[in-house]
Simulated scan of single mutants.
Amino acid sequence: MSLVLPSELVVDRFLPTVRAMLAAELAERGMTQQEIAANLGVTQAAVSKYVSGESGGDDRFRDDPDTVATVERIADGLASGGMDGYDALAELLSLVRSLEDRGPICELHEEEMPALRGLGCDLCVRGLDPDISAERDVLATVRTAARTLAATPGMVDSIPNVGTNVGMALPDARDETDVAAIPGRIHAMGGRIEIPAHPEFGASKHVATAILAAGAIDPAVRGAINIATDDAILEAARAMGLDPLEFSADYEDRGEHLRTRFEERGAVPRVAYHSGAFGIEPATYVFGDSADDAAALIGELLDAAMA
């Protein structure tokens, strides 16, 4: 994996573009090239290239509304004398921080370091926050579990019409924003399984609700996957000694209903299902200590069901 610091991208891609944008704006406000060079800390020859449009630059920054607004604000301030170098620097540093927070600098960083994609990286914003490691682990586990499902024989026939999702919660999760899942859900298309995006926190309401209900009874259970309810899979679960738990599809508060059913069982089952209701497709939840545990169990259930 190539190691690229975000600061390198700021120096190599952001700063030349912003200097060129500033030079053009200051020239429009009547500053001479010598005055512009003094304000920007570059040579007059560099300013000449900036103003003539020969310097290039990155269109990601040229087209970014925050960058355009900041450049115009600095140009107005420097041209009018209402802003000095310290003020301009403060504006630029604030802009850089915002662009590193899922903005163009972050996008460039993920292009230069593809291993960062799908990790929800926010090191630039949060630094070495101890929670980051846990979040990365959860995102990576959900991503692995989704790929496992896509490669599982027979899985394509177990994806409900509404789609399947893979979810996993952070330790001590409080709400659905602490549960990572696949945005848009996983669908079967043309006999293949399509995973539309990398996992994100807060991407699923239904699977997150099931995981949070399970975690309220047993904090060790942090993963779940929904599949279509199928008698052969339920029989396979019973043959494995898992004793699937049936719950009602027709309820107002799904989380409360599931917690009640789990409490009545005295434990969180590995498999819980309902048979549907008017306008509600039958669904089965497979639980695990993690998302990949749940994916592995689905593979075992499908193997047994197809045997």
Rank of each mutant, 00 (worst) to 15 (best):
H109S: 00
S7W: 00
A90Q: 08
I195D: 10
T67K: 01
P199R: 01
A146R: 05
A283D: 10
A38C: 03
G82S: 11
F262R: 13
L40S: 02
A115Y: 09
E110M: 13
M113F: 00
S275H: 12
T144L: 09
A249F: 06
A173W: 04
G163R: 08
G56R: 05
M83Q: 13
V138C: 11
I227M: 10
T152A: 07
I211V: 15
S275T: 14
D63T: 11
A237W: 15
A45P: 03
A239C: 03
I195T: 03
S55W: 09
E281V: 08
G190F: 12
V10P: 00
E252D: 11
E28D: 09
A291I: 02
V47C: 01
L302H: 02
T209Y: 10
V4N: 00
D58M: 05
P160Q: 02
Y50R: 03
A38R: 03
V18N: 01
A46T: 07
A140G: 02
L26W: 00
G276K: 13
S158D: 05
A249R: 04
L297I: 07
A79R: 04
E200D: 04
C124R: 00
P183A: 15
G85P: 04
D243M: 07
D122M: 02
Y285C: 11
L92Q: 07
E25G: 05
I193D: 02
E176Q: 11
A38N: 08
E72T: 02
V179A: 12
V11F: 00
R261T: 14
F14G: 01
T17D: 01
E100S: 06
A208M: 05
N226T: 06
A304R: 15
L15N: 03
V221L: 07
Y273M: 07
R222C: 11
G56N: 10
V11G: 01
A294S: 15
G53Y: 15
I193V: 15
P171E: 07
E281D: 13
D253S: 15
R185E: 09
F247E: 10
V51H: 06
E194M: 09
A239D: 11
E111I: 01
C106F: 02
S133E: 15
E28Q: 14
K49W: 12
P114S: 14
S55C: 02
R261F: 05
E110W: 06
G299M: 09
A90N: 03
A210N: 10
V138I: 14
E194L: 04
A216D: 12
L15V: 12
A203S: 10
G53H: 02
G120P: 03
A188N: 11
A37Y: 08
F61L: 05
I233M: 14
T209G: 14
D230M: 09
T229M: 13
V51C: 03
F201E: 07
A146W: 09
M113T: 10
V11K: 05
A305F: 09
A23F: 05
G299A: 08
I193H: 12
R192Q: 09
P171G: 07
L170P: 01
L128V: 11
V138G: 05
V268I: 14
P160E: 07
E281W: 12
E252Y: 09
R259P: 08
A146I: 08
R143Y: 10
G279Y: 13
D172A: 14
G103R: 06
R238P: 01
